[in-house]
Amino acid sequence: MRSGKVIDAMIRYYAGDVRRINHFLKVYGFSKAIGEMEGLDDRTQEILEVTAATHDIGIKNSEEKYGNCSGAHQQVEGPPEARKLLEGIGFEEDIIERVCFIISRHHTYKDIQGIDYQILVEADFLVNAFEDKLQEAAIKSFRDKVFRTGTGKVFLERLYGEI
């Protein structure tokens, strides 16, 4: 696994932005745990971990170009930045393609394709629900509409109780 190199590169990329670094590290932690608990194969686990570390890499360019970091802008700006970072580390093209595919859709919750994409969405929500101080109704709605993994559902319940 090369996720340590990716985390190092992302900390350099977001140097001084503790909030963004803490966010992706929390998403990475939940993604890693859910993937392991769900029994992912090594390749899928690596893709998941790399995607979790880089999923918000489009924020910086979105804020510079558009003055905000909306999910739609992140999905456009993220893949080219992730590609540069991952090529610099020496990742294979097929892994880069999958990571970029997920980043380009990580704020899109319909037609989730693949367990790696599913887990990333769930892990990101587990962190965002807390960071954004979401109300119980919003958490319940997202859980019912989007969560699919047993581990993600258990983690959500352990964090927020039976909602």
Rank of each mutant, 00 (worst) to 15 (best):
K32H: 12
N61L: 13
I89A: 07
D116P: 04
I21A: 15
D56L: 08
K110A: 12
L25K: 04
G78F: 01
K32Y: 13
E93G: 13
V76A: 06
A82F: 05
K65H: 15
I102C: 05
K110C: 10
D56E: 15
E46D: 15
G114P: 02
E36M: 08
L25Y: 02
I112R: 06
F91I: 03
I95N: 04
E36F: 07
S104V: 03
G71F: 03
N22L: 14
G67K: 12
G39A: 09
H55E: 10
Y66F: 13
I47S: 06
G58D: 06
E36D: 12
Y14N: 13
Q113R: 11
V18C: 14
H107T: 05
D94Q: 11
K60Q: 15
M37L: 11
H23D: 10
R98C: 02
I112L: 11
C100R: 12
G71V: 01
A9Y: 00
F24P: 06
I115L: 02
F24I: 15
I57M: 14
Q45M: 11
E49I: 12
I21H: 08
A9F: 05
I103Y: 04
H107Y: 10
A52I: 06
L25H: 02
G114H: 01
R19A: 15
E81N: 08
R105F: 00
D42T: 11
D94Y: 04
Y66T: 12
T108M: 07
T44P: 03
Q118W: 00
K65P: 11
S70T: 13
L40Q: 03
Q113G: 07
